[in-house]
């Protein structure tokens, strides 16, 4: 029974990154009536997925990233699969270079986010443009991307504090 309870706790702690990413989706899409496009706001889901894909790719799996992207698409009414595809490819690119992240400073991780976030947004833009059959004005996307990059340090600071919750006390991580 004790072992079982430990296993449950381990799984719950392991699910934290995905739960936080889903929470970011809800916060991103909460209505803040300020304009036709909902006003300018950062895309914090992107930052949360990046953080966990860099530091705990074993917990932010491709299936989890796909699910988070799909939930975002379903709730926001955007082309179904567009965000999921963009996040998946983004995570794939990070995993392919995962050795690069070993013992890198925060500045380097943030600088990489500065390159990674626009690349993911471009995939999302192309998916939406392909579905709409037209190129919509990309300027709001550029602003959204800039806000997301600017938000990253604060979000990262919070997630680093929550990172401690993911680890089981007294157990070695894989």
């Amino acid at each position: 029974m004790g072992l079982h309870a430990g296993e449950v706790e381990r799984r719950l702690r392991g699910a934290l990154p995905v739960v936080l990413a889903l929470l970011a989706v809800l916060v991103d899409l909460a209505p803040r009536p300020a304009g036709a496009g909902g006003g300018l706001a950062p895309f914090s889901t992107l930052a949360v997925v990046y953080f966990w894909s860099v530091y705990r790719p074993d917990l932010m799996t491709s299936a989890a990233v796909f699910a988070v992207g799909l939930v975002y698409d379903v709730l926001s009414g955007q082309p179904l699969g567009g965000t999921a595809l963009a996040l998946l490819l983004g995570r794939g690119a990070l995993i392919a270079r995962r050795r690069f992240f070993d013992a890198k400073s925060f500045g380097v991780i943030w600088a990489l986010f500065l390159l990674w976030a626009p690349a993911v947004e471009v995939v999302r833009y192309l998916a939406a443009a392909g579905l709409l059959g037209a190129l919509v004005d990309p300027r709001p996307l550029v602003v959204q991307c800039a806000l997301t990059v600017a938000l990253y340090p604060a979000l990262s600071w919070m997630l680093v504090r929550l990172h401690g919750l993911v680890r089981m006390p007294g157990y070695a991580e894989p």
């Binding site: 209505p31 926001s76 009414g77």
Partner: peptide
């Protein structure tokens, strides 16, 4: 009640 924003340059919808 409006419960979600599209918050997107691609679509202007509300849930």
């Amino acid at each position: 009640r409006v419960v979600a924003d599209s918050r997107s340059p691609f679509v202007h919808t509300r849930l």
